[in-house]
């Protein structure tokens, strides 16, 4: 039963990921809000604390949160984001640890919206929302106002990750099943990043990672992951 389910999932996600793979040129515009191209010069951006959870998949396919992995992923992401964003021409600030509690609800809101953008816009296909007219038109609205008031930034960057890894037993089971011609899941990395305009809550740019590779448990692959996620991050206007 559960095997059947996973095979369905494999099929679905392969298909849903396909258009993005086939048409990189389209993907470019797909990731931006209508009318948005570059970041304002001299603008400031606040990097929110990444929302991340890591899981293991046991031999039987049971998925369990792994707090120790999550802990290190958090550190690695923070470090990679620091490097990546400092390289941009923006004034970068990071959300201080103590403000996390105050903005927890906004982070939860972002996660819900990001999931819908990923599902209904980037995956697209038969899950596209007709009322959005094929445009990436989502806004967190005035929910983000408190962030601007507190930190005075023009933009905020939200990052969200869920990543899972096969246990050794799982890998053994996968190997055995593969011999029988049955593919079962190893693990998958899902990441979302949203650039949000703090004036009106508009999601200006969005990207998603959805892949069977990538590892947040170690620093080097975590850096690769962040760079992949922010690969297409908007540039600052030339002048």
């Amino acid at each position: 039963m559960s095997l059947l389910i996973r095979r369905y999932l494999v099929v679905f996600f392969l298909f849903s990921a396909l258009p993005a793979v086939l048409s990189p040129a389209l993907a470019q515009s797909k990731n931006r809000a209508p009318g948005f191209s570059d970041l304002a010069k001299e603008a400031s951006i606040l990097v929110m604390t990444p929302d991340v959870e890591l899981y293991s998949i046991s031999a039987g396919g049971v998925i369990e949160p792994k707090a120790d992995w999550t802990e290190s992923a958090q550190r690695h992401l923070q470090a990679s984001l620091q490097t990546r964003m400092t390289g941009s021409q923006l004034k970068v600030q990071f959300l201080p640890e103590e403000d996390g509690d105050a903005f927890a609800e906004i982070s939860a809101l972002h996660a819900a919206v990001a999931q819908s953008i990923a599902l209904h816009h980037l995956s697209g296909g038969n899950l596209k929302l007709p009322t959005k007219n094929d445009q990436m038109d989502w806004s967190l609205g005035d929910a983000v106002t408190p962030i601007r008031q507190k930190h005075g930034a023009d933009y905020a960057l939200f990052v969200w990750f869920r990543d899972s890894y096969a246990s050794s037993e799982r890998k053994a089971a996968m190997f055995a099943m593969a011999l029988l011609g049955i593919g079962i899941s190893g693990g998958i990395q899902v990441g979302y990043a949203s650039l949000v305009d703090l004036k009106n809550g508009q999601v200006l740019w969005f990207n998603r990672l959805l892949r069977g590779t990538g590892d947040l448990r170690e620093q080097a692959p975590a850096t690769e992951t962040v760079n992949a996620l922010l690969n297409d991050f908007p540039a600052v206007a030339a002048r």
Binding site: A59, S168, E169, A172
Partner: peptide
């Protein structure tokens, strides 16, 4: 120990 058992394929499941 589980990793060792895991090397024996399906036995990993029982071992677990």
């Amino acid at each position: 120990l589980g990793q060792v058992l895991g090397l024996f394929g399906i036995a990993g499941l029982v071992g677990q």
